[in-house]
Structure formats: C-alpha cells, structure tokens
C-alpha cells in the first residue's frame, strides 16, 4: 500500500533575477516496508525532492500527500507535528545534540514525539533500540567521544525510536567508509522490514543499491527511470 504520494511536484528557486525550475513535475509513490533509493547526478534535485517530501521545505506547485494530508497546504505547526510523530530523519552527518548522552538523545526524541510511555518504559525502549543498532554499551557517552560510524548508528536509533511511519535518509553513508556504509545500509533495510516503515534514501554509492527494493533515478528535475 502506498503511504506517501507526490503529485506533479514542482520547485522553483529564484536566484537574483533568474528563476530556475529545479523540480519539473515529479510523481512518486512510496510503499510500506520497502526501501526506495533516489539516485542521480549531483544537482539533479534529489535533496530538494527529499526535503519537500519530508516537509522541511514547501513545493512551489503540486501535492505531497501523507495519510491523506496534503503537506503543501498545511500550516507550519501541523507539519511540525507530523514530522515529530511520524517522520524520522537521517542525514549525511549525525547531527546529534552535543550536550546530551546517547541515551538522552533518544529520550529527547521520545519527548518531542509526545510519547505516551512512562519514564521506565521509555528507558527500556531506549535500551531496546540501542541494542538494535548495537550501541547499548555506549549509552552514557557524549557524541564527542563516538566515532563517525557510531554517531551515525545513534542517529539511526534517534530516527526510529518514536516508531515513525516514514524514514528519510539523505546520503546516510557518505561520511563513512565502505565497511561501515554497508553496515548502516543493512541496518536501515532491516529496520524498514521489521518495523514496516516506508523508507526513502538518497545515495550516490552504487554499492548500496543491493540493500534497496526500488531505485528511482533523477535527472534534471525529473524522474527518468523506475526499477
């Protein structure tokens, strides 16, 4: 079933006097429990498309439909709530909060998503997710003492602890070496399957494509290939 649909999404940036159309009418639907990869040349509009889908910026035209809500017509606060409760984010860099421990990063996410769990239930949920990403032994560590791969695994844990329906990842492996990249992608795939999440991953790395169910290729603001 398709949880997420984009209809004729267009995005125009105005740089100085020049208007440039970066997305020229994208149609896309994402399916539950599957990883969809977005590939294409640099500048083809992948990140722009992903952030529009994630409600981090608005489309100039077209519809972004999540569970029957059209994000492109919603108020800021409504979109924020959807992001907090139903979306998870992984970026090229982990972007952890520097002054929180690994455990606190995840508790914060539960807090932001207004989790109904009691305090001790939240803690055991944090433990469980940290086990999933293999970071439970660094629960009390601060981000500054973690390696890049470890940070990224914590970021993944943060992105899924509140049981999002959609996971957005923009080049989640770009800052990691080949071995760690594979680990992270395998982890994203596994989580997608076990938690039945809808996942959209932007990647440059051909090697990562073995972990995905669909590949969408973009070129010059349009989807040129589906597989």
């Amino acid at each position: 079933m398709s949880l997420f649909t984009l209809n004729e999404v267009k995005k125009t940036f105005t740089i100085g006097e020049v208007k440039e159309e970066i997305l020229k009418g994208v149609n896309l639907s994402l399916r539950e429990g599957e990883v969809t990869a977005l590939v294409g040349a640099s500048g083809s509009g992948k990140s722009t498309l992903l952030t529009i889908a994630a409600g981090l910026q608005s489309a100039s035209n077209g519809q972004v439909i999540f569970e029957g809500n059209n994000l492109s017509q919603m108020e800021e606060e409504g979109i924020r709530k959807i992001r907090a409760n139903h979306f998870g984010f992984i970026f090229q860099f982990a972007h952890l909060v520097p002054f929180l421990t690994v455990e606190e990063q995840l508790l914060l996410m539960l807090d932001v998503s207004e989790s109904k769990l009691k305090k001790h239930e939240q803690k055991s949920e944090v433990n469980r997710i940290l086990q999933v990403v293999g970071m439970e032994h660094r629960k009390q560590a601060y981000p500054s003492s973690l390696s890049g791969g470890e940070k990224q695994r914590v970021a993944i844990a943060r992105a899924i602890i509140h049981k999002p329906k959609v996971l957005f990842a923009d080049e989640p492996t770009a800052s990691l070496d080949s071995k760690r990249s594979k680990d992270v992608m395998a982890l994203i795939r596994e989580i997608t399957k076990t938690l039945n999440i809808t996942t959209l991953v932007v990647t440059h790395d051909e090697e990562m494509l073995v972990f995905v169910d669909h590949i969408i290729k973009m070129s010059d603001g349009l989807i040129v290939q589906h597989s």
Binding site: R80, K81, R83, A84, F87, F89, H95, V97, V112, S113
Partner: peptide, 13 residues
C-alpha cells in the same frame, strides 16, 4: 543556529 535547525527538523517547537 545549526543545532537549533536540527532540533527544529526533528520536530522541537
């Protein structure tokens, strides 16, 4: 500002 941007992205008010 960078940190606040991230916090906003993950849904902090």
């Amino acid at each position: 500002i960078g940190l606040f941007g991230i916090l906003k992205a993950i849904g902090l008010k």
